[in-house]
Amino acid sequence: MPSLLVVDDELLIRDLLYDFFTGQGWTIAVAENSDKAISIMENKPIDMVLTDIKMPGMDGLELAAWVREHYPTTPVVIVTGYPSVESAVSAIRSKVTDYITKPFNINQLYKTLEANMPGRKETGKQK
């Protein structure tokens, strides 16, 4: 069963993603900020991280860099309501797996995450 960590400071987004992915049979952990996300990752196995960029404290790109350093094989997908060239370039440099803009189509998001979930026969690109 895939395990996904959702990191977003918006409760509505966390709830939406929790309900949807739980319904798909995935194990979901949620965090409202990067510090809590790090704490979760240090205490339970996580297959993939889905994170917002703009959050209080450490932002999602910094979290992606932390994940890359400590869990180099764990994919990180960025989702943001404030896309910019600068943050997308930073995402490339942090070797994130994908960069998705809000509002997103949740079924499309599901396909993207599923395609890049480690252990799948046909995973997405390996960076």
Binding site: P83, S84, V85, A88, I92, V96, D98, Y99, T101
Partner: peptide, 9 residues
């Protein structure tokens, strides 16, 4: 932004 995201993917 579209070109950067496409390049990332």
């Amino acid at each position: 932004i579209e070109a950067v995201i496409r390049s990332l993917r």
